[in-house]
Design a protein around this nucleic acid. Structure first.
Lengths: 236, 236
DNA sequence: GGCTATTAGTGTTATTCTCACACTAATACT
DNA sequence: AGTATTAGTGTGAGAATAACACTAATAGCC
């Protein structure tokens, strides 16, 4: 622990992390985008649904705090979380002034074995178009996170986390569409992901139902980073 | 003030705001990108140069805190600040665990009448390619802010804040180039800003030196918002 | 007055990206 | 053999982007 030479101690806002985790669910041709909510078991807003989250402890990294709270409240581990930003409007938390750092992430449906604990009475996936009334200003925060996610995903369809290691292009497209909330042209989609080198054919095919089997693909490790890295390196 | 029903009181990280303000300086054809630094007059890092910033007070909005600290330390007011993100790596502040919310902004050179006060011994603009050693992790934060700014500016050249109400297209281009750190084609640049409807000719011309006078332009209020608003509205 | 230096201002073309669009292939089921 | 279903493929029009060079207007100098 760092030796603190210059202490300071006065009333200060608290810091929390809030996580907006998304997944997709339902039939391939009718995937829904769902967000993970917990039912609060503590005041304030006891019984209300809310984004998982909690206080950042002293000497804890923000990202680590997000991962810890997520694991505590929902049992989910090793989720890739991306920072969305900080929100600190006074009055957003009745307990006192609280600044929250918002994170967004994607988790596959099959890892979604949720174990509510900690401050959470229950943890459940909700369709984003049919949400209950949320605690705090979590409706605003959720919108922020979703918008962030959609901007990121519009760059390239990298929904790694939502798919098994081997998947068909139709699956990738269905998932992308579910998150973006709009349909995409199949041929353009396939051409794009292949030209970008984001995926490569893996062995085997998958067939479900009475139709032509689909080629399986896998993500090319690091391809997205390489693709994004092309944004010219800055002189400074 | 909100009545606090559910108090909580345990060791918690502090919250600061840090502002990376940029301006451009120098001859039109050789503009430098400069960042505003203050010389700390307090421990820790007394005497070191740092980004202006300071603690968020209880019940203070994050944006308001940023504006207040900026005014206190440098005398600058009514600067447009955009949130970059939050950084809270443990150990980044020797006084204890501190989470900082980073803001970026642009200010015109002529408003750059800096009055150092508060925790600041001095306030000065520095060329971003010739920076002194900075306090805390402000080198990392500055890089973050600059990268944010460049991404935003690559969308459209909206350097409103850096130019007088009336300006020539050459000036606008020079400023844009200084921030992006690369040259742009003059014809393509002029065509683009005009087609996007971001600027409109204003009255008069400006002439400096032995050459053809330049048409003056002004920004069209709200044009950028309208332009960005085109990003399809989301169903959710 | 004419020459020079300097910045302002303008169009075209090749290339790349985006988007809309329709048919054939392979399979299971009857 | 026929039907239903999803997988898989190419092309062309239009838009955006990027590269490129000359003329226009002025001040200063001779």
């Amino acid at each position: 622990m760092t030796k603190r030479k210059y202490v300071y101690d006065w009333p200060r806002p608290a810091v929390t992390v809030d996580m907006a985790l998304f997944t997709v669910a339902g039939a391939l041709n009718q995937l829904r985008l769902e967000v993970l909510l917990i039912q609060r078991d503590e005041e304030p807003f006891r019984g209300r649904w809310a984004l998982p989250g909690g206080f950042v402890q002293e000497h804890e990294d923000l990202h680590a705090a997000a991962a810890r709270e997520l694991a505590e409240e929902t049992g989910l581990r090793e989720v890739i979380l991306e920072q969305v930003g900080a929100v600190g409007t006074p009055g957003r938390d009745p307990r006192g002034h609280t600044i929250t750092v918002v994170w967004a992430g994607l988790v596959p449906g099959d890892r979604a074995v949720l174990k509510a604990s900690g401050d959470a009475r229950a943890a459940k996936w909700f369709d984003v178009i049919a949400l209950p009334k949320l605690a705090f200003d979590h409706d605003v925060i959720l919108r922020l996170a979703l918008s962030h996610l959609r901007h990121r995903l519009a760059e390239a369809p990298v929904c790694f986390e939502l798919l098994p290691s081997s998947f068909t292009l139709s699956e990738l497209q269905a998932v992308t569409e579910a998150i973006l909330g709009r349909q995409l042209d199949r041929r353009n989609f396939r051409r794009k992901v292949q030209e970008l080198g984001l995926v490569e054919p893996s062995e085997g095919t998958r067939q479900e139902g009475a139709h032509r089997p689909a080629q399986l693909y896998r993500f090319v490790p690091g391809a997205f980073e390489r693709y994004r890295g092309k944004e010219r390196s800055l002189p400074f």
